[in-house]
């Protein structure tokens, strides 16, 4: 009995324990490895390939941060987290940052005490149904059985959407995307709902993707991005400006192909500042001058990362849409590097 009390209290304390007094940046440098929280597997965003190497859009963000901080994009330990475990993993210090298509919301930012450092994908929630169902609009889904990942914003949006449209549904709660995919393909639910990028990514992995259709309705705003614990501003700045550097690089035309050449010095002072040819920025961040150069060289600029993992040439085939640069009618925009 006494022992169980101790163990119970230990368990409770574990949630809050593990917070170190040193800054996360120093901790990561000392450890020589970045602990990055990702999904348990969502093609295009974060999933291990045939060789067990993690690949994807969010994964490339982890690698860019590792390259900037540690000088090596491979020094990342990927920690798979579910919708339910991700915040505990970050709050407890198990991971240094989350890059796990997580929606930036008020309560997560303010009440859960996290800092969202960037929006790397502007998304919205959608519905996917089998074509055979003959449904062309989400408004026709009254009475449907819906597979939904628990612990997500989509769960709350779903409840709100059906309530607002005076429709009923039967939720089938699932834990991971893989589980949802299996249930949906088995026909245990009529509809699978999550962020539209996630639907496209999931659909791309189906044996017959053409038998399924993503309905046109976008029922929510889902700004996805990397996040860190609140209260460590130095670390938040590092992750924020690594993310910004990727967007700025696309804006300035810095690619993984020409970065070596451009870093020798150009007559564009902005390029010189970001690539560290004109020093100074790295030191302010607690890093060396070539931090952004390494981050960009790891996987290329934002446009290259998007094209390689999610773009129209991949099986997922997402258009840039809202995620085009601001100069191309999108929302991706970086504050100036000066």
């Amino acid at each position: 009995m006494k022992k169980s009390v101790i163990l119970g209290m230990a368990g409770a304390a574990c949630l809050a324990a593990g917070m170190a007094t040193a800054g996360t940046l120093d901790e990561v440098k000392q450890r020589g490895e970045l602990n990055c929280g990702v999904t348990t597997g969502l093609a295009g965003f974060a999933a291990p390939d045939a060789n067990g190497v993690w690949q994807g859009f969010d994964v490339d963000y982890c690698r860019a941060v590792a390259a900037a901080v540690l000088g090596d994009p491979t020094k990342v330990k990927f920690v798979p987290t579910t919708g339910q475990t991700r915040f505990t993993a970050l709050a407890s210090g198990e991971v240094d940052m989350l890059a796990r298509n997580t929606t930036w919301t008020f309560s997560r930012d303010v009440d859960l005490k996290f800092t969202f450092v960037a929006i790397n994908y502007y998304d919205g929630q959608g519905f996917m149904v089998p074509k055979a169902l003959g449904v062309s609009s989400a408004k026709e889904l009254d009475g449907a059985t819906v597979c939904i990942q628990t612990g997500t914003t989509t769960e709350l949006n779903l409840a709100d959407y059906f309530k607002a449209n005076n429709m009923k549904y039967d939720p089938v709660p699932i834990e991971t995307n893989a589980e949802g995919q299996q249930q949906f393909l088995a026909g245990a639910c009529d509809v699978y709902t999550t962020d539209r990028s996630g639907l496209a990514a999931t659909r791309a992995t189906f044996a017959k993707p053409d038998d399924y259709v993503v309905l046109p309705e976008v029922i929510s705003k889902e700004p996805l991005g990397p996040l860190v614990r609140q209260g460590d501003d130095q670390w938040a700045d590092v992750v924020r400006w690594v993310a910004n550097s990727l967007v700025e690089a696309e804006d300035l035309g810095i690619t993984s192909a020409n970065i070596e050449e451009l870093s020798k010095g150009t007559n564009n002072p902005e390029i010189n500042r970001i690539l560290g040819t004109d020093g100074g920025l790295g030191k302010m961040l607690g890093l060396d001058d070539a931090w952004a150069k390494r981050a960009i060289a790891a996987n290329g600029n934002y446009g290259e990362i998007f094209a390689a993992n999610l773009g129209e040439s991949t099986p997922i085939g997402l258009a840039r849409g809202l995620n085009a640069l601001w100069t191309h009618g999108g929302l991706q925009y970086s504050p100036p590097f000066r």
């Binding site: 209290m9 230990a10 304390a13 809050a16 324990a17 917070m19 709050a91 005490k113």
Partner: peptide, 14 residues
């Protein structure tokens, strides 16, 4: 344990 919990909740601002 209790102290540790209270302290860390405080650090987290919760």
């Amino acid at each position: 344990l209790v102290n540790n919990t209270i302290y860390n909740l405080h650090v987290l601002g919760k």
